[in-house]
């Protein structure tokens, strides 16, 4: 690539700003770190342990498969580290070591490497891994049972979404949105602080690494569908602000739904993709059996990604 040959004719893109996968990965890691730090601040050493183990094991799994598949070593591009970090951020701080190892195995090997490595994965690897863990180990990913041994000085010591599912909006109406936004709620170790996630998301948008269309459409989808539910029956369905600030909504909007190889590239498809994800998440939360629907919603929109990307301007001169 960097040889000094003259007159090279290559395919698109013809202009390149010099950034590559490593830059994207490291910027995303920087964006995700504040939320992870908030998690460490709230949950202490166990959270740090989960994050370190996840990042280390993710890199090791990728290295292992690079060797086994006799492929070039790709751990240097930081993608494995990023996926390890994001996997840790959606797990509860109490996750045992083997759960972390299985999670990163599923994310790195089943989620990405099986499909041929970075850029070829049809699903968001983190969402895939967490979905499989959710159906296999319900009790470890149920924040109420998982975090029972932690003493947290949060306004409510139960998972707000689980409380909503079990007792209705009345049980959660005294939760202050500011508390929720600051991450003072029971949840994944790096996925509950809305402020830090939003800061990271805005940083990534300004850097051009994630597309604002997807995140904004996702948030709008959650907000509008939750508002419609709430207007239809305020006794049974929680207000939109609540849905926006709890569970995996914001980490989903900024970090999971926007993952580059499993999301669309055109303007209208991005809006459709994001909005559908938000609507699905609220549908699963409000009328499904699962407490949080964001993970499944993201897997579902990953599935329709190739389909919505067909909505694109017609090529000039092409017949039918």
């Amino acid at each position: 690539m960097n040889s000094k040959k003259m007159l090279i004719v290559s395919h698109a893109p013809f202009w390149h700003d010099g950034s590559g996968i490593p830059e994207r990965s490291y910027h995303t890691i920087i964006a995700a770190l504040p939320a992870a730090f908030v998690g460490i601040a709230y949950y202490g050493a166990p959270a740090l342990g989960v994050i370190s183990l996840a990042v280390a094991s993710a890199i090791l799994w990728e290295l292992l498969l690079n060797y086994a598949g006799k492929r070039p070593i790709t751990v240097g591009n930081g993608n494995a580290a990023l996926i390890g970090l994001l996997t840790a951020m959606v797990l509860p701080a109490s996750a045992p070591w083997w759960l972390v190892l299985i999670g990163t195995f599923l994310a790195i090997i089943i989620g990405i490497q099986i499909f041929g490595g970075i850029g070829a994965n049809p699903f968001n690897p983190v969402a895939l891994a967490i979905a499989i863990l959710m159906v296999s180990y319900k009790s470890h990913l149920d924040f109420d049972t998982a975090l029972v041994n932690f003493t947290l000085d949060f306004p409510s010591t139960t998972d707000p979404l689980a409380a909503l599912k079990a007792f209705g909006p009345a049980a959660v109406e005294d939760l202050n949105p500011v508390d929720l936004f600051m991450g003072r709620q029971v949840g994944g170790l790096g996925s509950s602080c809305g402020l830090a996630l939003a800061l990271g998301g805005i940083y990534l948008m300004l850097r051009g690494i994630i597309r604002w269309e997807i995140s904004i459409a996702f948030i709008a989808g959650v907000f509008i569908s939750a508002m419609l539910f709430n207007m239809a029956d305020p006794v049974r369905y929680a207000p939109p602000m609540f849905h926006l600030l709890t569970g995996y909504t914001l980490i989903g909007a900024f970090f999971l739904a926007t993952e580059s190889s499993s999301s669309p590239v055109n303007f209208i498809p991005m809006l459709v993709y994001g909005a559908l994800g938000g609507v699905m998440a609220v549908l699963i939360r409000n009328i499904g059996v699962y407490v949080d629907g964001v993970i499944f919603a993201i897997l579902l929109i990953n599935l329709i990604n190739p389909l919505v990307d067909k909505i694109r301007p017609k090529a000039i001169g092409k017949v039918a």
Partner: peptide, 9 residues
């Protein structure tokens, strides 16, 4: 050991 239920599904 906690069984990995996904495997038998």
């Amino acid at each position: 050991f906690e069984p990995f239920g996904f495997a038998v599904q």
